[in-house]
Design a protein around this nucleic acid. Sequence first.
RNA 1: CCAGCUGGCCGGACGGCCGCUGCGGCAAUGGUCGAAAGGCCGCCGUGGAGGAAAGUCCGGGCUCCAUGGAAACACGGUGCCGGGUAACGCCCGGCGGGGGCGACCCCAGGGAAAGUGCCACAGAAAGCAAACCGCCGGAGCCUUCGGGCAAAGGUAAGGGUGAAAGGGUGGGGUAAGAGCCCACCGCAGGACCGGCAACGGGACUGGCAUGGUAAACCCCACCGGGAGCAAAACCGAAUAGGGACGGCGCGGGCUUCGGCCCAGGUGCGUUUCCGCGCCAGCCGUCCGGGUGGGUUGCAUGAGGCGUCCGGCAACGGCCGCCCCAGAGGAAUGGUCGUCACGCGGCGCAAGCCGCCAUACAGAACCCGGCUUACAGGCCAACUGGCAUU
Length: 120
Amino acid sequence: MERLLSRRDYVAVAKGRRLGRPAFLIQALERSAEGPSRFGFTVTRKIGNAVVRNRVRRRLREAVRLIGRSAARPGTDYVLVGRAAALDRSFDRILADLAGALAELGGRATTSPPATARQG
RNA sequence: CCAGCUGGCCGGACGGCCGCUGCGGCAAUGGUCGAAAGGCCGCCGUGGAGGAAAGUCCGGGCUCCAUGGAAACACGGUGCCGGGUAACGCCCGGCGGGGGCGACCCCAGGGAAAGUGCCACAGAAAGCAAACCGCCGGAGCCUUCGGGCAAAGGUAAGGGUGAAAGGGUGGGGUAAGAGCCCACCGCAGGACCGGCAACGGGACUGGCAUGGUAAACCCCACCGGGAGCAAAACCGAAUAGGGACGGCGCGGGCUUCGGCCCAGGUGCGUUUCCGCGCCAGCCGUCCGGGUGGGUUGCAUGAGGCGUCCGGCAACGGCCGCCCCAGAGGAAUGGUCGUCACGCGGCGCAAGCCGCCAUACAGAACCCGGCUUACAGGCCAACUGGCAUU
């Protein structure tokens, strides 16, 4: 998984499309038609102390690792902003949330894409 | 057994599957880039959060900056004594004071006869003490001759105020009182004795002075240069810009090719004028500064574990063994299963069911401390009860 590393990238993606899900908020910005898709993670202090923030980021990162490569659109940068629910929501549901969100943002075909995914 | 007190320790376990990251290896299997060295992937092995990693409150190592040495002044810190330590505001052992039946706990614990300030309210008086009531006293005045009023003066025993009223109790004494005198207690000084010291004991002496506050200024003793790993050192691209050198070139017009005319920027001499010089574009090579980035700093250290020795202890010493996280938008994980512990419910019990499947909390240059947070549990010594032999 390619990571977003610089502040400039995060600021840029913040201007892209965004979708809310219980465990996270996802932002997407098409960088170019080609190249790998990249992911960044943001967990603010509002969520909790360092232990809680680490756990939220790790669960989201694991979700991206499992389905990000197949579901994400090439050449696109994504930023996942963690929410408090990412701590307790079952991992299966987080995976489903992420797959649905990526599809709605115009990703590749996934194992269970929503019907409206390709319309936009 | 119950209650307590002190110290130490742990703070989920095991196993699948899929990942991240450090180190070592690739002799064996593979892919890719490269001339090679080697890199990236892959494979194998192995390591990968805490007792507080936290707060960033002290003390150091290390780095850079400043600084001729020393001292003084200022500022800040520390503050019983002895020891431990690289050092400390930390730790250990004592001393003094306070609390507890006790084990034990708590203390910002130098100096108030160097000086200054403050002591609100209440109260007559709050520091070279003080007469409000009271007590004594009785000049003098009045008198119904019973007595009444009462100045000067004396008095800190009693009342009242206050956190605190200038020793306490008893006796003598006195007009009433008062260390005025006496006894005991307290207090002050103190030869001498014990202790390295803080300090303890104390013959004897003194009629009793020197109120509290230093977390008020202050005085005394000791300590202290500043900033911090985003410190700092090194390597160093593209692009733009700077400098040096070399090569080719060197504004426009006219020309009889000898020159003539008109211009720009810039340097010097003082501005205009004027004089002298340089430059303009392209290409190449080199130099220096700096940004992104990379490497080092960065993990062998006041290091850990163990036996023994010294010491009441903190700790120190000999020897042996071990290498024990190293990220960088920041790895140390995700998920599933089984189980221990715990909590709740049901049950006489064996047990069954349910819940959480654990509190506080995540290394960021590294050590020594302190402080704060913390579900649950284990061990040991000691103390006070109860029971038993």
